[in-house]
């Protein structure tokens, strides 16, 4: 499944990542004691290894067989809605509380996966968010962000 283009872009990015680690490591106060085996040694070796491997990967892409133009039909819309609402979920978790944010996320995600069956969706979402909150906060005495004002 590896496509030439993606692998080349990845290789370039990874070379930069490797270079970043090498350059950053050089700023550590190296040889904090004696023998010169400081905190920079290991990341520098790894950074160089990553650069070399990425170059190797880039080189390998020249030997890929020409791929058949067989584009996979992926559901990017569904994916973006769910990942987007997941981000919103994480952002609002500590503001509107665990129960509400989880409930909303689940409703959106389930409906995005497949439209319809609203009653079941609402029941599953409410059951999960309230159930987890009750189990974790009331019985296991953990902490999760409560609902504002009501404090539950």
């Amino acid at each position: 499944m590896s496509s030439r283009r993606t692998d080349r872009i990845t290789a370039v990015i990874l070379v930069l990542v490797g270079a970043f680690f090498v350059i950053q490591s050089r700023s550590f106060a190296s040889a904090s004691y004696g023998s010169g085996v400081g905190p920079d040694l290991f990341p520098i070796i790894l950074g160089i290894a990553l650069i070399l491997l990425s170059i190797r990967l880039f080189y390998e892409t020249f030997h890929y067989q020409d791929e058949k133009q067989e584009r996979e039909d992926l559901d990017w819309k569904r994916f973006s809605i769910i990942v987007g609402s997941l981000l919103l979920y994480v952002m609002t978790l500590e503001i509107i509380g665990y129960i509400l944010s989880t409930f909303l996320f689940l409703v959106i995600a389930i409906q995005t996966m497949e439209r319809g069956g609203w009653l079941k969706t609402l029941l599953v979402s409410a059951g999960f968010s309230i159930g987890i909150y009750y189990l974790y906060v009331q019985i296991l005495e953990g902490t999760l962000p409560p609902l504002p004002i009501i404090g539950w």
């Binding site: 978790l93 500590e94 996320f105 995600a109 389930i110 996966m113 497949e114 599953v124 999960f128």
Partner: peptide
Amino acid sequence: KYLTPIIIAISVFGVYAVQVET
């Protein structure tokens, strides 16, 4: 359609419960 969102929710719950850190 239920399983996938719930796995996400369990991941979020699990990580938050242990780390308590967004």
